[in-house]
Nucleic acid binder design. Sequence first.
DNA 1: TATCTTTATCGTAATATTGCAATAAGAAAA
DNA 2: TTTTCTTATTGCAATATTACGATAAAGATA
Lengths: 110, 110
Amino acid sequence: MGASKTDHFTEEQNTIAMLAKALGHPARIAILEYLLKVETCICGDIVNELPLAQPTVSQHLKELKNVGIIKGNVEGNAICYCIDENAFDKLKFYFEEVSSKMEKKKNNCC
Amino acid sequence: MGASKTDHFTEEQNTIAMLAKALGHPARIAILEYLLKVETCICGDIVNELPLAQPTVSQHLKELKNVGIIKGNVEGNAICYCIDENAFDKLKFYFEEVSSKMEKKKNNCC
DNA sequence: TATCTTTATCGTAATATTGCAATAAGAAAA
DNA sequence: TTTTCTTATTGCAATATTACGATAAAGATA
């Protein structure tokens, strides 16, 4: 097999898993942190920041863009990539919700 | 290749990516939610909750346990699985930190 | 002891991911 | 127009993930 059985889970479960998966690679975490650190958004130099070849970085950017965590604007012949707060917050809120449910539960076990 | 170049990234980047990756599958999100919902922790019936075969569920549980998101206690001949708040909170705090940095930045671009 | 219950592991097949060299595509500059 | 610069795409190889049937391992029960 190798393919996830996404059709058997709820839409939310699939969405959260998709977002988490997109952040499930150190290069993509590094990209996120770089976009956060940098003031101006002329982000062609992400490639120089990462220990990876340009096609590989481009692929990681594409994955982040596919799930909506970043968005890109064409800026001359370069491209300006930015974090899309909406998608990111969706994940953050979900984790906060889980965390507060855990708080209420106050481990009855383990 | 197919293997991530983890040695070129910071320890934190690798840790966060590892945790995010572990949650990057709807079945594992469903497991998390089930553990959160259930009052008692006699959790052998996770298998019945999921649309997956027992070996597959066992594998997903193992992955969550490997990264520390859940922990398991032997309880007779069954096993009691629980969420490990420490590992989970590490991820939550990271996202909150990123989120507050985004807030301060107030998109100068895109 | 023999059997049942529960969970883990093995083996295997299908598919996905990661990475990069080569190359293409597009806009800017000469 | 030709060149240059930046990013995307293609093609491929290596590895990882997902899924499950078969089977093993270990404690509980008869």
